[in-house]
Design a protein around this nucleic acid. Structure first.
Lengths: 314, 314
DNA sequence: TATCCTTACGGAATTCGTAAGCATG
DNA sequence: CATGCTTACGAATTCCGTAAGGATA
């Protein structure tokens, strides 16, 4: 039994049981991977993978159990490295953040800058993706801390904590009739072509639900992945945009876009931070979390990481 | 980084940082151990052990963290082996039980026999010791399941669950004056020379507390490690014995010993089973637990093992 | 001086890559 | 027949034991 075997098995599962891919991903030879896995199965006395002839088909039942143990082991190996960094290179290292466009573009600049100010030797790496990809990046140890509004809560391998609350706003070109209305209604919005976030994104489900409850069918002209794109299409008159309020922060009133809060229609959303359960967090990761929200003290995070599935609401 | 290094570090800590002992315990050469640990420290970039010259003195602060991670890794390695056994040798394997004399002698014969009946291929190994040693055997993976009345609850690396309740009984030679008394009092007991369990054992603290509360100083003639020894000394007239009620189960009324319950004086005790937190339990371990008490269903145990420190009272 | 950790070194076992074999879709 | 896992084999590396060195109590 050795760590290489564990790594191979884990990667094989992540690569859909394709050992050739696995070998490439780990920069080693394919026969080496094959042999290592066979030897592990031999030693444990159980098949981890069910094979059709020579092709790996699925994970066996004992394989599921084995995988759980391997996940934990590899997690702790990662932790060991982090512990090493934490104590050797005091306050230096790399912080990988997985997040959505909105957060990266509008929310994170402040916290990241303040982190760099306190820890000048910390390198920050931003990974961007859909909320579901953010979760995956955390699970695969690509990123250490994740930030997104949805979908993070649905993995119990992840610990999520509320970070801040926000609401949607309507964006229209400055001269648009709706710009004059203080509190637009769902009916008014449904009458216009809409430019929205993509369905998997930032609080989009809230919007859909609100329309559905009112038995209205919104006229979705365009779905886009980020607020900048949405604003661009709003400017050229494609329709009425709905974005996160943060995204309008830098647009001065009296500019070419007008905006109105829509909290009364879609309620408020909660942006959440997420960590992989059981991860060792270095000082500067805790410091960064505190930049994201005062509430996220090391003590609170520690409690959330050790407890199983408790929710810490705002 | 490899599993050998982890094992060496773990064992070194268990052997009070004596690498020579460590090497012996693991059947390998002392320089090998030394080198492996040095290389791990090199790779992680931190000292795990603080050295005075060439002698290991204590675990450093990063070392503490490293140890935690290593503990988890080695635990999961053990689990992997168990998973292998569980699925390959269906319902065969070895069940190591750590327990005190009283349990081994009077309580376990039934459950063990029933286990063997259901799982004829399971080998049972009994490890006997003081309650504190029972705990240590669990922590060191010498035993998989522990059974004792005291001291198990004080380690948070262990999960303990109530198993059954019992009370103390007084034992005297058949003709003894106290044999005629239905409910002996503390004063009556304090007037006699007593033959008791050793101080670390099975509910002994209860006895001491009861006398202390009544401001009585018991006359302890002899302390012994198990009920059989106590009964022997009672037979030869050394004094009045106090043992667990289970220990008298096989003595017929009208034999050479008479006994009376003492629950009214010393209250009741709870025997508890214990597992190492995070351990993988094979089918037959769960089956055995159910033999110990109906309440100990696999589901309950699973819940207790995953939850942090919750107490499941009877 | 006795104990105990580190360094040095060499033979043995393991590892890991390339090449070939063979089964599936 | 293209993809993809397993087997075979040999070179390179790592492992691990003995012997020697050096530091502490």
């Amino acid at each position: 039994m050795n760590l290489h075997q564990f790594r191979f098995v884990q990667e094989a599962v992540r690569r859909d049981l394709n050992l050739t891919e696995t070998a490439k991903a780990l920069f080693t030879s394919q026969p080496g991977v094959s042999k290592a896995i066979l030897e592990l199965e031999e030693e444990l006395g159980v098949d981890i993978f069910a094979r059709h002839g020579k092709r790996l088909k699925r994970v066996t039942e004992p394989g599921q159990q084995v995988l759980k143990a391997i996940e934990i082991i590899m997690r702790e190996v990662t932790n060991l490295k982090r512990i090493g960094e934490q104590f050797s290179k005091q306050d230096a290292g790399t912080l990988s953040i997985a997040t959505t466009h909105s957060q990266a573009r509008y929310f994170l600049p402040g916290p990241v800058a303040r982190l760099r100010q306190r820890f000048p030797k910390v390198q920050v790496v931003l990974h961007q993706g859909m909320p579901e990809q953010v979760a995956r990046m955390l699970l695969d140890d690509v990123a250490e801390i994740g930030l997104a509004t949805e979908a993070l809560a649905s993995h119990d391998e992840l610990v999520t904590l509320p970070c801040y609350e926000w609401q949607h706003v309507m964006v229209v070109p400055a001269g648009h009739p709706l710009a004059a209305i203080e509190r637009p209604t769902l009916e008014q919005l449904a009458a216009e072509p809409l430019v929205l976030y993509h369905a998997t994104m930032t609080g989009r489900t809230r919007i859909d639900q609100a329309f559905a409850r009112a038995r209205l069918k919104p006229n979705v002209a365009l779905e886009a992945i980020d607020a900048d794109v949405i604003k661009t299409y709003v400017r050229i008159g494609m329709g009425v945009g709905i974005v996160a309020e943060l995204a309008m922060r830098d647009d001065p009133p009296g500019g070419d876009l007008a905006w109105r809060p829509l909290g009364h229609l879609f309620g408020s959303n909660v942006a959440r931070v997420a960590f992989k359960r059981g991860a060792y967090l270095r000082h500067f990761v805790h410091a960064f979390a505190e930049q994201l929200s005062d509430r996220l003290s090391p003590a609170l995070i520690q409690r959330a990481m050790s407890g199983a599935g408790t929710d810490y609401s705002l």
